[in-house]
Every structure is written in structure tokens, then in C-alpha cells.
Simulated scan of single mutants.
Amino acid sequence: MYQDEIVEEIHRIREEYSCSFNHDLKAIFADLQKQQAEGGREVVSLSRKPGLTTRWSGRVREIGEDAKDTSRRST
């Protein structure tokens, strides 16, 4: 069976990292949060903005008085 050297290296590094925290997920999560805070990069939220619905929901988007329900076809 083919074994990719890069994938094997990633698995090894991940196992070493996990072992360094005695496989404690809470400790690993805390460390990752610490690294994120110290990294200096901007963290953005990708959650939906309130008041907007998905395109296919059939509900009107709250964009003003001119909003109309486009889920119904006119024949």
C-alpha cells in the first residue's frame, strides 16, 4: 500500500503535539486559543448576519420596503 511521506509526517507531528498535552483535549484547545491570540491575526466571524435568510428559503429578505417574495413563480 502506498504511504505518502507528507501525510505520515503530519500524523507524526500531530501525535507528538497530542502527547505533549497527555492527549487532554481541553489543554490542547487552550493552547491553540493561546497561539491564536498571540498570532496577531484578525479573527473574523463567518456567522450569518441577523435579518438575512438564505436564498432558497422562500422568505423575504429584510432589505426594505421594496422587498418582495421571489419564491413564487408568475405564469
Rank of each mutant, 00 (worst) to 15 (best):
I10H: 12
D24W: 01
I13Q: 06
Y2N: 12
D4Y: 03
R14W: 06
L25G: 04
G51Q: 08
G51L: 09
I63R: 07
S20C: 08
E42N: 06
G64Y: 04
T70R: 02
Y2G: 12
S18T: 13
R59M: 09
R73Q: 01
C19R: 15
S57I: 05
K34W: 00
D4Q: 02
E9Y: 06
A67V: 05
I6P: 02
W56K: 13
D69Q: 03
S47I: 08
K34R: 00
F21D: 01
R55T: 08
S57P: 08
R48F: 14
G51F: 08
L52W: 15
S57M: 02
R73N: 00
D4H: 09
E8N: 08
C19Y: 14
F21L: 08
S57D: 07
R59I: 02
S45G: 12
Q36A: 10
R41W: 01
S45H: 07
P50K: 10
C19S: 14
R14F: 08
Y17M: 08
S18P: 07
D24Y: 07
K68V: 08
G58Y: 02
K68I: 07
Q33L: 04
G40R: 03
R72S: 04
R59L: 12
S74L: 03
E8D: 14
S71P: 00
R48H: 14
D66Q: 07
L32N: 01
T53D: 13
L25T: 06
D4W: 01
C19D: 15
R61Q: 10
H23W: 07
T54Q: 07
R41C: 10
R73M: 01
R12V: 00
E15L: 13
H23I: 07
G39K: 01
F21R: 05
V7T: 11
T70D: 01
E62K: 08
I28A: 04
E9H: 06
T54Y: 05
S45Y: 03
D66P: 03
W56Q: 12
G58N: 02
Y2L: 12
V7R: 12
R12E: 12
R72D: 04
T75W: 04
I10M: 10
G51D: 10
H23R: 13
I13E: 08
Y2V: 11
T53H: 14
T70V: 07
G40L: 12
S47A: 15
E16S: 15
E15H: 11
A27D: 06
F29C: 02
D66V: 05
E42M: 05
R55D: 06
W56T: 15
P50W: 05
A37Q: 05
G58I: 00
P50T: 15
T70N: 02
S47G: 15
Q33V: 09
Q3V: 12
L25Y: 01
T75I: 05
R61A: 05
S18E: 14
E38Q: 11
R41E: 02
D4E: 00
I13F: 03
E38A: 13
A27C: 00
V43S: 04
L52Q: 15
T75E: 09
M1L: 05
N22S: 14
D24K: 01
L32Q: 06
A30R: 01
A27K: 06
R73K: 02
L52E: 15
R59P: 06
V44H: 13
Q35K: 14
R72A: 07
V44R: 14
